[in-house]
Write a protein that binds this DNA or RNA. Structure first.
Lengths: 204, 204
DNA sequence: ACCCCTATGTATAATTA
DNA sequence: TTAATTATACATAGGGG
């Protein structure tokens, strides 16, 4: 069991590359969750792995909803305050971006639910028609709770989200009613991670 | 120098929290670069840290351009092949998303160049008007090089990118002509990271 | 605020089941 | 194939300049 000094180059062997990917990706997620709790950062991660054929949400899809709702709420509060400054402009753009992202994910999930595009072996990287799906990770500093808007944000989750996001969440929930942090939804991998909700010791 | 077992909770002390954040974030980025090289994944990371007041691009802003151009090229090749299937549909959406993201970043950088919004101390989390900027990380599997399109993609970088992305890159380059992987642009932090270009041992 | 050091916790490569 | 094991490489907490 002599461990080599980790040769930093592409692992040609398919199975060992996949194994490395899974291990290291797991470690990466744990690290992110730790950074999240330690430094007070809300983390939301969506991941599409080329090595997995399932979609994973961690620790729960609801957390992602909450992060996004929170972010939207922040924007709307700013608008109510008529703060038409650069900050609100920037956050508007960001919220728009996040909404598109969610819509995008929603579309993806529909597609994958209908017909899995990636019935993919680890060695299928030579497929010419395959377009790699991106792994996306978002971590956002939770600076807002200090301004006393937690309750409003909470209600926001329940009654003011666009239908597509609700559908997206419901689509996840209908297929996954357990509390298992790794829930399989179908066709791809997706992960969410939040500094508020995580139990950082569940991996050990 | 007895090292405690890392209490997994929010670090209340501002300076030590910031120190931890910087250390761990650096480690996170290194991990991502390693995953990138080891498993053949192209990585592109944009980071906005609440603890930094400068924008950082690593290892170079050009890499981000290349990743995005590559992705766009993939999409266009698919379109030429008249592959109107779900895969191209999904990748279209993703490219659109990335374009918006770049545009968003462009806007941010313009704004920050004009007037730095975040002259922010580590303890300024109680500021009520501040909207947290997200840290965003994107990693995408590089599945395309195997289909022999490297040359086309390369030319794509030079002559077919939208003006806004070019402006974005140029805006970075004009202010940063050195090869220092950590280039300060102003007002915020941004990071790019690429599996193709990284030198994973530069941290040791 | 750094940067550097190093003891120690943690991730993980290689291996076995 | 994945799961568990374990030795070792690596990350980093705490401390000193």
């Amino acid at each position: 069991m002599i461990r080599k000094k980790v040769k930093l180059a592409y692992i040609t062997n398919d199975s060992s590359r996949k194994a490395t990917y899974k291990k290291r990706n797991k470690g990466l997620m744990k690290r992110m969750s730790e950074l999240s709790t330690l430094c007070g950062i809300n983390a939301c991660a969506i991941m599409y792995s080329p090595y997995e054929s399932q979609l994973e949400v961690w620790p729960s899809p609801i957390g992602g909803q909450q992060v996004l709702s929170k972010f939207k709420m922040i924007l709307e509060m700013e608008q109510r305050k008529n703060m038409v400054n650069q900050e609100s402009f920037l956050s508007q753009r960001t919220v728009k971006l996040l909404n598109e992202k969610i819509s995008n994910i929603d579309k993806r999930m529909d597609a994958f639910a209908m017909a899995p595009l990636y019935t993919q072996r680890a060695s299928s990287s030579s497929s010419s028609s395959m377009v790699a799906l991106p792994l996306m990770t978002m971590v956002m500093p939770k600076a807002m709770p200090r301004i006393g808007t937690e309750d409003i944000m909470q209600s926001d989750v329940n009654n003011m989200d666009p239908m597509k996001r609700q559908q997206w969440i419901m689509g996840l929930m209908n297929k996954n009613n357990n509390n298992n942090p790794q829930t399989q939804v179908g066709g791809d991998w997706m992960m969410f991670q939040f500094g508020d909700n995580i139990n950082p010791n569940n991996g050990h």
